[in-house]
Design a protein around this nucleic acid. Sequence first.
DNA 1: GGAGAGTCTGAAACTTGTTCTACATTAGCG
DNA 2: CGCTAATGTAGAACAAGTTTCAGACTCTCC
Lengths: 219, 219
Amino acid sequence: MATDPRPSSRTSPRTAVGSPDSQPLTERQEARRRRILHTSAHLASRGGFDAVQMREVAEQSNVALGTLYRYFPSKIHLLVATMQDQLEHLHEALRKHPPAAASPADRVADTLMRAFRAMQREPHLADAMVRALTFADRSVSPEVDTVSRLTTAIILDAMGLDTPPSPEQLSAVRVIEHTWHSALITWLSGRASIAQVKIDIETVCRLIDLTAVPAPPAP
Amino acid sequence: MATDPRPSSRTSPRTAVGSPDSQPLTERQEARRRRILHTSAHLASRGGFDAVQMREVAEQSNVALGTLYRYFPSKIHLLVATMQDQLEHLHEALRKHPPAAASPADRVADTLMRAFRAMQREPHLADAMVRALTFADRSVSPEVDTVSRLTTAIILDAMGLDTPPSPEQLSAVRVIEHTWHSALITWLSGRASIAQVKIDIETVCRLIDLTAVPAPPAP
DNA sequence: GGAGAGTCTGAAACTTGTTCTACATTAGCG
DNA sequence: CGCTAATGTAGAACAAGTTTCAGACTCTCC
C-alpha cells in the first residue's frame, strides 16, 4: 500500500506533515492524520502515557512507523497534538454552553471545573496529555504554544470581557493557566484531592477580580 | 570491591536505599548516595535531562548500574532526589539571608525570584530537575511530596507569619507553588521571558495580601 | 570460624522511542 | 506515456532506561 503524492515546492519538507505551515493535506493524508490522533487518544485513554507506544499507534492506524514519525516527529509531539485536538473539542462545547455565573471570576472557575470534570472522565488520557505537555522541550515549543493559546482563548472567553484584556489581566490569565496545569498534575499523580483542586482554582480566580479594575490598591 | 552490610530486619527491603523509612545508612552507603547525587547534578548541569544517563551516572559514581537502581529506582527518582538536595541547600541559604522586604507578598516574591536567579545560573540543571518533577508519576509521589513540602516550607518561611497559616493561606501558597513550577517550565522551554515570569510571580503573590486578613468577603 | 543474609559488581538481556535503508507507489508535468 | 520528486512501507538497527542473574564480598550471628 502506498499513497498520495503532492510534491511540495521545497526539495524536502523539514516540517511535520500537517503542521501549521506545510502544504494543505490531501484527503488521504488528512484521514491518516485523524486516524493517528484517534488511535493516540484511544490508547491513551486506557493506560495513559505509557500505553501510547509508537509501534502500536502506527499499527492500529495502518501506517508505517516511519510515516507516523513523519506526521509527528516524536511521541511528545503526538500527544501534544492530541491535546490540541481535545482542547478544540472542549472549546467548541464551551461555545455552545457558555458558563452562566455572574462574575468573570466565577465563570472562569466554572469553566475550569467543567474542563476538570472532563478530565476526570478520562483520567488516563488526561495523564498522557498533560505529562507530554509539561515534559515537552524546546523542539515542541510551537505546538505547546498553540495549546497554550487555545487555553488562553478559552479562559478569556469565559471571562467575557467587553474590552481587550489589560496586561495585568493577561498576567492573571497566565497565572490561572499555570495553576490549572500544575493542579491537574498534582491531582493526576494522586497528591491532591479534587476538593483541593477546586479550592485552588477558586483561589486563583480571585486574581481576576483583583485585576478587573485597573486601579491598584494603594500601598 | 564489595561492601557494607547492616542486614535489615526485614527479609528483603522493598524501599530504596536511603529513602525516608529505611534503615539509617552506613557511612559507605551515605557516601555512595552523595556521590550519585553529585554526579547527577554535575551531569544535569551540563546537558540537562538527557545528559543524565543512568549508565554514566553509575560509572562516574563508581557504582554498578544495579546499585544505582537500588538507591534510586528510576531516573525520575534520581532527579527528584537531586532536586530535593538542591532545595535543601537553597533553604539553608535562605535561612541565613532571609528576604528583607516589608510585606509578606514582597518577601515571597523576592524569595522566589532569588530562587529563580539560582536556576538561571544552572539552567540545564533546572531543566532536568523540573522536567523530572512534573513528569513523575504516582510511583514517585512520596519523593515529589517531599519536594513539595520543602517548597511550601520555604514560602511559609518567607511569609514570616506570626500565626499558623489559615486554610485560605495554604491554598494561596499552593497556587504560588503551582505558578512557580509552571512558570519555570515555560521559561525553560523558551516560551516565556524572565520579565514575564517576574510579573507572573508578582501577580500571584498578590494572593497573599488577599488572604492575609482571615475575613472572607461575605456572600 | 563457618553459615546466612544482605549488598555490590559486571555484564547481558529486554523494552520502547527514534533513526535509517532499500524498495514501492503515486501523480504532477513535460 | 514515461520521468521524477515526494510519500509510504517494511523492517532492521540503534540508544538509553530498566531488569535480571550469577557470583563476589562483608558482616552479624551462632
